[in-house]
């Protein structure tokens, strides 16, 4: 496939659509601050956002809920390991081992 110069226009506009939401409030900082109540509420943003990305990823297979699947089992293993031990590498080792092990045991 060939792309013309308009591809670079797409990149630049997408770059703006990324940097402006990211930098907006950080740059305005001193001149514009959110009400304290809203700030307290926003403390929950990272937990809510991370879960909103992770949960569908491990619970859905091809767009429908699948409560028994290798990714969910691997995620639960990673959660248990991360909650129990402080070693930061262990969840990766155990999670990937469970995922690849189950995929090897139950192919397809």
């Amino acid at each position: 496939m060939n792309y013309d110069a308009s591809l670079w226009l797409i990149f630049i506009l997408l770059g703006l659509a990324t940097t402006l939401p990211r930098a907006g409030f950080i740059v305005l900082g001193n001149r514009f601050s959110l009400p304290p109540t809203l700030q307290r509420a926003l403390r929950y943003a990272p937990a809510a956002a991370l879960a909103a990305i992770v949960v569908p990823d491990v619970l859905l297979v091809g767009g429908s809920v699948e409560p028994i699947n290798p990714k969910l089992a691997a995620a639960i293993a990673a959660i248990l390991v991360a909650a129990r031990w402080r070693n930061p590498w262990l969840p990766f080792i155990v999670g990937m081992a469970v995922l690849l092990g189950l995929k090897a045991l139950f192919p397809g």
């Binding site: 990324t18 939401p21 409030f25 926003l42 403390r43 943003a45 956002a49």
Partner: peptide
């Protein structure tokens, strides 16, 4: 990228 608007507002006081 909308989540970054929330992140940006949340972390702004840190700067």
């Amino acid at each position: 990228n909308l989540r970054f608007l929330i992140f940006s507002a949340g972390i702004a006081p840190g700067f």
